[in-house]
């Protein structure tokens, strides 16, 4: 029988004990982190976003997407699609979803880009972290939610934590890749004129790595959106709530409404962040090309 062949191994208990001990020993600190994030990031940003009249947001999205893509037809479509989300009665929930996404992405940027830069600069760090990133990326997203809940209980904060961990790897990876791919002679030439490391970074490496970093931001954003929807299971408010509700009450219609809203957000954000991967001149050239 198979059960006799395999030596039974389990470290589930040890992991549970580990988390328990973190909670008992550092509970206060974790609680404080949670408070700070709510007080200074999540709550004010949500208040702010909810206080903007929807029509202003529609106009802003229209302008931003036009600035990014230079295609008026597409911008108008995006604006109508967002308006449609409002018509479905999902405006407030969309804002809640966006709020958690935004905070997660900001944290991803603050952590991910510097780590990517350090990895490009330090070989051993890269060798150390690459497998970790692989694991982070292939771990099923549901597994992240458990420790997040155990450490930060239920609500927006664990949702942000789980989202950051899930969405971070591609940004780190593509930042490192982008910097490693910077044209060797451009880097060498700048260096030969006596730049400091900082000058080299902001004048040469980051700008030339920009397409790759923007691709990373694009992927991170998409993953964050997916995770935020799922994170409604741990009490993140927003579109995911409706999907979860539809699932538990066999209300396909309600779930589909929210699903459509997620799809619209995904396409909108994807297109805009992709376009910003190109610089102003490239976009202008594409614009000229499409007019010709």
């Amino acid at each position: 029988m198979a059960s006799e062949f395999f030596i039974p191994i389990s470290f589930a208990n040890e992991l549970n004990l580990g988390i328990d001990s973190i909670v008992t020993n550092y509970g206060d600190q974790l609680h404080r982190v949670s408070e700070i994030m709510l007080q200074y990031l999540l709550v004010p940003l949500e208040h702010f976003l909810q206080s903007i009249p929807p029509w202003i947001i529609l106009i802003l999205v229209g302008l931003t997407s036009y600035h990014a893509l230079r295609r008026p037809g597409l911008s108008v479509t995006f604006v109508f699609a967002l308006y449609f989300i409002g018509c479905l009665g999902l405006w407030e929930k969309t804002i809640q979803t966006l709020n958690i996404m935004l905070v997660s992405i900001i944290i991803c940027l603050v952590i991910g880009v510097p780590i990517g830069i350090l990895m490009a600069r330090t070989k051993w760090l890269s060798r150390l972290l690459l497998p970790v990133l692989d694991v982070m990326q292939t771990f099923p997203m549901f597994v992240y939610m458990l420790p997040a809940v155990m450490l930060f209980s239920i609500g927006k904060v664990p949702a942000v934590m789980a989202t950051v961990i899930y969405a971070l790897p591609p940004l780190i990876r593509l930042t490192e890749l982008g910097i490693n791919q910077v044209d060797e002679e451009a880097r060498e030439a700048a260096w030969s004129f006596g730049t400091t490391r900082w000058q080299l970074l902001i004048w040469v490496q980051l700008p030339l790595a920009r397409p790759s970093i923007m691709a990373g931001i694009n992927q991170t954003t998409m993953l964050a959106l997916a995770m935020v929807v799922v994170a409604s299971m741990i009490g993140a408010r927003g579109l995911g709530e409706d999907i979860l509700h539809g699932l538990t009450n066999l209300d396909f219609g309600k779930g589909a409404h929210a699903g459509i809203a997620v799809v619209i957000l995904a396409i909108l954000i994807d297109r805009v962040t992709q376009a910003y991967g190109m610089n102003r001149r490239q976009r202008a050239q594409i614009n000229q090309g499409s007019q010709a």
């Binding site: 002679e185 700048a190 030969s192 004129f193 006596g194 040469v204 700008p207 030339l208």
Partner: peptide, 19 residues
């Protein structure tokens, strides 16, 4: 300091900043 004040170089494949 040496690179800033003493030596400059012209590169075979230019090495200009495209942006």
């Amino acid at each position: 300091d040496l690179r800033r004040h003493k030596i400059s170089m012209v590169f075979q494949s230019f090495g200009l900043l495209p942006h």
